[in-house]
């Protein structure tokens, strides 16, 4: 997809999300309602096939461009499985399988299925095999963002195929990439809320944003949020070049960076808002609870750091810097 078309899609999705989702939608979702109106507004934009290659009838969006969309979805705490649907379609197309219409999601076999109860179909990844199933009966579960994370008893496979080597054998990397970008987006949104509040909430006769104690904390927030965004987008770029499997290092680094930022920044946001920020009626917790949840999905910081650290130890300190630079540059030789 050309840069221009990608930018237009970004803009359309941003507008639709702004129009179709608000705190009321997020609250309704938590009572189990599917936000049909939001789905009807977003679905026609064609995100479902965005990551499917053009030769397979999709839009052929790069993962880097997709990361921009995941970021937007995170910014709006999008109450729809749009990122999951994009990922599922990418997996199906990679295995040469057709993409069904309707709400679609994906998960590693045996794990909780994001948005399972609302999905028509689910894509399961198991040891390099991809299969498409009717979603079947869902036993509801949720993360602390109160997003559906259901146990499914899916129907028999409608389609089956093998993932090419560049996708690797597990769904974790794709989930980690999506959640990293969503966290980066949610951080931007929470930062905007906190800055706006700091500029309007008056104590001791002036907006609290005038106090250096608050300024310094929000500056740190902005820096961590920027780091999460750069990391997620860079990891997506690496995955475009090397394939998801070989971008495990970058995706892991992004997940660690975003996860650490999520913890640091959610705490700062709540500190700035004080008591009002922890009330049910406030918008902030829809972002912060998702930040805390998304850290856990697609591998925690601990999981990825253990993997990356062990690999570095095995290679030895003398190889650390050459390995980091070579990952970018071996494509250039």
């Amino acid at each position: 997809m050309s840069e221009d078309l990608s930018a237009i899609l970004q803009e359309q999705v941003a507008r639709a999300l702004t129009d179709a989702t608000d705190v009321a939608t997020l609250r309704a979702l938590e009572t189990g309602a599917f936000p049909q109106a939001a789905w009807d507004a977003l679905e026609p934009l064609g995100l479902a096939l965005a990551l499917v290659p053009e030769e397979a009838g999709g839009a052929g969006l790069s993962l880097e461009d997709a990361a921009g969309l995941f970021l937007l979805l995170g910014q709006h705490a999008a109450p729809l499985p749009l990122a999951e649907g994009m990922g599922a379609a990418l997996l199906l197309a990679a295995a040469g399988l057709p993409v069904p219409e309707g709400v679609l999601t994906f998960a590693a076999a045996g794990e909780a299925v994001p948005w399972g109860r609302h999905a028509a179909h689910v894509v399961l990844v198991d040891g390099g095999r991809v299969s498409l199933h009717p979603a079947g009966i869902a036993t509801p579960g949720e993360n602390i963002g109160r997003e559906p994370r259901d146990a499914l008893a899916p129907g028999p496979a409608l389609e089956e195929g093998a993932l090419p080597a560049r996708f690797g054998a597990e769904a974790r990397g794709l989930t980690a990439l999506i959640r990293s970008a969503q966290m980066a987006g949610a951080l931007q949104a929470a930062l905007a809320l906190a800055v706006d509040y700091a500029n309007t909430r008056v104590q001791f006769g002036r907006p609290i944003g005038r106090f250096q104690a608050i300024q310094q904390q929000l500056a740190l927030f902005a820096a961590e949020a920027a780091a999460a965004s750069v990391a997620a987008r860079s990891a997506a770029r690496a995955a475009d070049r090397r394939g998801l499997a070989d971008a495990g290092f970058e995706i892991g680094c992004a997940k660690i960076t975003a996860g650490e930022a999520a913890g640091t920044c959610a705490a700062i946001a709540h500190q700035v808002f004080a008591a009002i920020g922890v009330t049910e009626e406030h918008a902030l917790h829809h972002l912060t609870r998702r930040l805390w949840s998304w850290r856990e999905e697609g591998g925690t910081e601990r999981f990825w750091a253990q993997r990356i650290g062990a690999a570095a130890q095995a290679r030895g300190g003398a190889a650390l810097w050459p390995d980091i630079t070579a990952r970018d540059e071996e494509f250039l030789i």
Binding site: A227, S234, G252, I308, G309, I324
Partner: peptide, 18 residues
Amino acid sequence: AAEPLGREVARLWTLRRM
């Protein structure tokens, strides 16, 4: 030590990208 070292490496990679 693997996990804390992995966090340092991840931070370094992100900062270099920035």
